[in-house]
Amino acid sequence: MNKNIIEIKNLIKLYDDGNTIALDNLNLEIKKGEFISIIGPSGSGKSTLLNMLGALDQADEGSINVAGYDLMEKKDFSHFRSKEIGFIFQLHNLIPNLTVSENVQIPMIHTYISDEDMVKRANNILESLNLSSKINQFPTKLSGGERQRVAIARALVNHPSIILADEPTGALDSKTGDVILDVLKKIHKAENVTLILVTHETYVADMADRTIEVRDGQITNSK
């Protein structure tokens, strides 16, 4: 039985000087290697939850422990994000003046990986995502699906233990979206990485091992 990689207890996140409750006493446990989908309407708190898990934002109350890190501590979690988390956004957010390979190398720049290994590692991942012919191209020359695959490569390059994907198919057509989901599923299986995917589409959510429904900052259903 796998151990919990994420443990959240009574998590509260407030905005607008406490007038808006984004997360309301939320409790959640996720095991290492699980594929979790989070669904819910707009403004339900699913993206806020994802930001808390990736230490992009900090909760006001409660406890949140991810991959052994206490994310309620008042400190910089850059190292945690670099080592444990791979982010995939709805918009690819690639840097336009860098080549595909260079974009993938960005998370490795401040690690102790040599330049040569950096290039090798980035190109290997791009090859596994069928992007070997695009390595030296700039993002503007790629299709939407290709750009998102580059973003996936960037998220995977530091071998994170958790991938946080915020509506990764939201900006893609259904056919391209399916390709991306297929890629994510394969990675999840091959790497035994914990995959947490935020979506508002039920058919995407159903691909996960477990679906968590969030409403008004609380988990209303987990199946």
Partner: peptide, 16 residues
Amino acid sequence: TREIGVLKAVGWTKKW
């Protein structure tokens, strides 16, 4: 701005 957000998301510190 968005790029800087990405850099921070992938682990860049304030100093970098």
